[in-house]
Design a protein around this nucleic acid. Structure first.
Length: 416
RNA sequence: GCGGGUGUAGCUCAGUUGGUUAGAGCGCCAGAUUGUGAUUCUGGAAGUCGCGGGUUCGAUCCCCGUCACUCGCCCCA
């Protein structure tokens, strides 16, 4: 068995899990399309530079979580650790500045080299939404509305809280950062080891610390709202007015910061207390500076990503769409094999889901039909062949009836 | 990357204070039932006790290492 294990932190998706994923994706797709978003699929790997430059040299994602390798041509490439940078690259590669605004959605695997835990794996799946080219707050509102609609459609909205913050425009953010460095710099002897590192690299992250000593200091730390300039205040107020107008509940969390460097203004997380340490189910924000960092023209953008595996843990069983119940065709005797195949073929052509009971006596084949949760079993043997009929058994009711082959599909379709 | 817990059949789990043939339920296969499923009854297959090393007359059990899973930290969806 040892050699047959999947790579650590990766999982096969089959059976019930596969149905859950598909159901959630279908719902996501229909919600996103209702907002006039279009599907985009970008490659699952990009040049390493694409991620390195945008995520920030200090981020954990870049420093220890990327799956990076050199391909046979000597290129440094990386399995995507998030969606936004790849989509931004695609936006520029395809010259879509011509067709702004662009509204995208996407779904697929994401890779991060992390220590696996429940709700955290090395290959996992995200659903992603982006609006590129709309600097106005309407885009932030719309993107939040998609998220909220999705969670409601999945029937889990009541277990999830929207936490909202504004990181401010670059000017506000820089002012706040300085204030934090000054404040925490005065308590170097009291800060936790982790937070001392954060003070150097990314002081805003100290606000996230779970260390008890840190939390005491954080309680009296400067609040970001005190450093907002007028533009930031106006922008945030518009976002809040907008989501209030459409009835989205939220909590302001001014300790909420995002891990990736390219965020500004709106930052948000939808969190739940039902998944242990991995509470974040959907998160995102505005990233107006991203395209410039990548060497393109300044272009506004806002979006989010949601973790499929985490959502799948929360969604109720009743929501999951089940596979169609099949009709099972069971030939009796070797001579019936070919006619049975023909019958199955005709029923499929009529749009029915059909499987064959391949072997065994009639009892075995019926058992097989039952195990597959079939609606009907269609028996065809010497007797029936002679008269151009098939024996059709309704497996829910236990009743059966001879039906002429020419009326078979009509009969079954009529009894559904 | 750091710390704790766990690892026995396809699945869920017993068990052995170190002792000969390691058990149960579910599932699977077969038969009772060669033209009729779900129930029932009978039988069967299936385990390098995660892997490697050590201690021992003897290890699934004790020790060390390793791998995987799991919980937490870091970080994040």
């Amino acid at each position: 068995m040892a050699r047959l294990q999947p790579v650590r932190g990766t999982h096969d998706i089959l059976g019930d899990k596969s149905l859950r994923f598909r159901t959630i994706f279908e719902i996501f797709k229909s919600v996103a399309e209702r907002y006039s978003h279009q599907e985009i699929d970008t490659p699952i790997f990009e040049f390493t530079e694409t991620f390195k430059r945008t995520l920030g040299e200090t981020s954990d994602v870049v420093n220890k979580e990327m799956y990076t390798f050199e391909d046979r041509g000597g290129e440094q490439v990386t399995l995507r650790p998030e969606y936004t940078a790849g989509i931004a690259r695609a936006f520029m590669s395809n010259g879509l500045q011509q067709s702004m605004p662009c509204k995208f959605y996407s779904f697929g695997p994401i890779f991060r080299y992390e220590r696996p835990q429940k709700g955290r794996m090395r290959q996992f799946h995200q659903m992603d939404v982006e609006i590129i080219g709309v600097p106005e707050a309407q885009a932030d509102i719309e993107v939040l509305a998609i998220a909220s609609d999705l969670l409601d459609a999945l029937g889990i909205g009541q277990h999830i809280t929207l936490e909202l913050n504004s990181l401010g425009d670059p000017q506000s953010r820089a002012g706040y950062r300085d204030a934090l460095v000054k404040y925490f710099g005065g308590y170097k002897n009291k800060l936790s080891e982790d937070s001392l590192k954060r003070l150097e690299k990314n002081p805003m992250r100290i606000l996230d610390s779970k260390d008890e000593g840190d939390r005491l200091l954080i309680a009296d730390a400067p609040r970001i709202a005190e450093y907002y300039n007028q533009d930031t205040k106006d922008f945030f107020a518009k976002v809040i007015d907008g989501i209030e107008a459409i009835g989205i509940e939220y909590q302001i969390n001014d300790r909420l910061v995002r891990g990736l460097d390219y965020y500004c203004h709106t930052a948000f997380e939808f969190t739940t207390d039902q998944l242990g340490a991995q509470g974040t189910v959907l998160a995102g924000g505005r990233y107006d500076g991203l395209m410039e960092m990548m060497g393109g023209p300044k272009t506004a953008g806002v979006g989010w990503a949601a973790g499929m595996e985490r959502l799948a843990e929360l969604v109720s069983e009743d929501l999951i769409s089940k596979p169609k119940r099949p009709v099972i065709v069971a030939p009796v005797g070797a001579d019936a094999q070919v006619p049975a195949m023909k019958i199955a073929h005709d029923l499929r052509a009529a749009g029915l889901t059909v499987d064959m009971a391949y072997k065994g006596n009639v009892g075995k084949r019926m058992k097989r039909a039952n195990k597959q949760n079939a609606l009907f079993a269609v028996l065809i043997g010497e007797d029936e062949m002679g008269r151009g009929v098939a024996m059709v058994k309704n497996l829910d009711q236990g009743s059966q009836q001879e039906i002429s082959l020419s009326e078979l599909s009509t009969y079954i379709l009529g009894s559904l």
